[in-house]
Amino acid sequence: MKEVITPTSKSYKEYLISSLQDVEEAAAYLETFLESNEEGREPEVLRSALKDIIDSRLAANNLSETAKQKYQQLEQMLSENSGNHLYTLIEFLDALGYRIKLEVKDS
């Protein structure tokens, strides 16, 4: 595990965007929002987390057109149903004894 250094001169948002450029950090960050229990779910927070990851990729000039298009589709879906479809899938998998785990793809 990496040693965490608290930002001092940068704003938290700048620090977050910078740290999310590491694909392992981004995967762990997003996974925490997908694992939240029903009481802790806030669809706007999940949308914000996804936006943070998109912003970090844009800052690194590392976002494909396909990813941009898929993000726009996902953003529209999440805005229309507050992520209920996504959370229903996660709850269904949980009931079957599974959980969502994000892994970085091999390049």
Rank of each mutant, 00 (worst) to 15 (best):
N84K: 14
L78S: 01
L50C: 12
S82C: 06
L50K: 04
G83R: 08
K51E: 13
Y98K: 04
D94E: 13
V23W: 12
L30V: 12
E75V: 07
K13A: 12
Q76P: 00
D106W: 01
G83I: 04
Q21D: 04
L74V: 06
A49Q: 00
E25I: 11
S107H: 10
G83D: 01
T88V: 01
S48M: 11
K105S: 11
K10F: 08
Y87L: 02
K105R: 13
S19Y: 07
S36G: 10
E75C: 13
V104A: 04
A27M: 03
L58Y: 13
D55C: 10
L102D: 03
T32Q: 04
Y98E: 02
A27F: 06
S11L: 10
Y12D: 08
S36L: 12
K68S: 12
A27C: 07
S107A: 15
S64V: 03
E31P: 01
E3N: 14
F92C: 03
K101H: 15
N62C: 12
E42S: 10
K13T: 07
S48T: 10
E44A: 10
I100Y: 05
E80C: 05
R47A: 09
Y71T: 04
S82R: 13
Y87D: 00
H85E: 15
E25D: 09
K2H: 14
Q76N: 12
T32M: 07
E3H: 14
A60Q: 07
E75L: 15
E24Y: 13
K68I: 12
E65G: 08
S79L: 15
A95H: 01
I53G: 02
S18H: 11
E91F: 05
A27Q: 05
E14S: 08
I17E: 08
V4D: 08
L20G: 00
T6I: 14
A95W: 02
Q76I: 13
Q76G: 09
L86Q: 04
Y15E: 07
S64C: 06
L58Q: 15
P43S: 02
S9Y: 11
E35D: 12
G40M: 09
L63E: 09
E35Q: 13
D52H: 08
N37S: 04
